[in-house]
Design a protein around this nucleic acid. Structure first.
Length: 184
DNA sequence: CTTACAAGAATAT
DNA sequence: ATATTCTTGTAAG
């Protein structure tokens, strides 16, 4: 069997539903995180068919523990070195790493992130990059909102996006736009 | 290589 | 508030 394609996964039951974390067996890098709404996607993914269930290492357990804490509203620190960057395109990698710098409790916009990666008119491309973020929660793509402060989509559903932001202390107006005036 | 998208943004109506 | 137009990185053909 191709070592590159051997995976193992673990699940975390949360108030949002079951979240699945997938690691590569060979180097214990996180290759993908599936949010509750993506259950079916996980079921039909290569990760399940080639994988084995169960967690067998400390770092993986540690991550799940941290994610559980994060979902309970606590600040957590996670190194970006634990995820697999080899399968992300250069542009997406840059966007995701930039997104990863947004502090908890703060939001940015797709356009501002585009500026930060020196692609001033690529707001939409940034949206694409975040929409296909393989590592939600670790890479906090929920902290990106539209320029009018309304919420765009989220792999786990806009509802989850809003709840995640509320956990961080972000407030919303009656039209579900973030009240923040200071963007990262 | 060309085409068709999409979690954007600015502008006009 | 909605429609139009410009924009750009990918996946698919």
């Amino acid at each position: 069997m191709n070592e590159e394609k051997r995976y193992y996964y673990g699940t975390l039951g949360s108030k949002f539903g079951e979240i699945v974390f997938v690691w590569r067996f060979a180097d214990n890098k996180v290759v993908r995180i599936f949010l509750p709404m993506q259950r079916d996607l996980f079921r039909s993914s290569e990760y399940r068919s080639w994988g084995m269930s169960g967690i067998n290492n400390r770092a993986a357990l540690e991550l799940i523990r941290k994610m559980e804490s994060l979902l309970n509203g606590n600040p957590v620190e996670v190194s970006l070195d634990i995820v697999d960057w080899t399968r992300t395109a250069a542009f997406q990698r840059l966007v995701l790493r930039t997104e990863g710098k947004i502090p908890r409790g703060m939001v940015s916009t797709y356009g501002r992130i585009a500026l930060k990666v020196n692609r001033p008119h690529a707001a939409r491309a940034v949206g694409r990059a975040l929409a296909t973020n393989p590592f939600p929660l670790i890479i906090p793509c929920h902290r990106a909102v539209r320029s009018d402060r309304s919420l765009a989509g989220y792999a786990g559903g806009v509802k989850m996006k809003k709840r995640l932001l509320e956990l961080e202390g972000i407030e919303f107006d009656q039209k579900d736009r973030v009240v923040t005036t200071r963007f990262w």
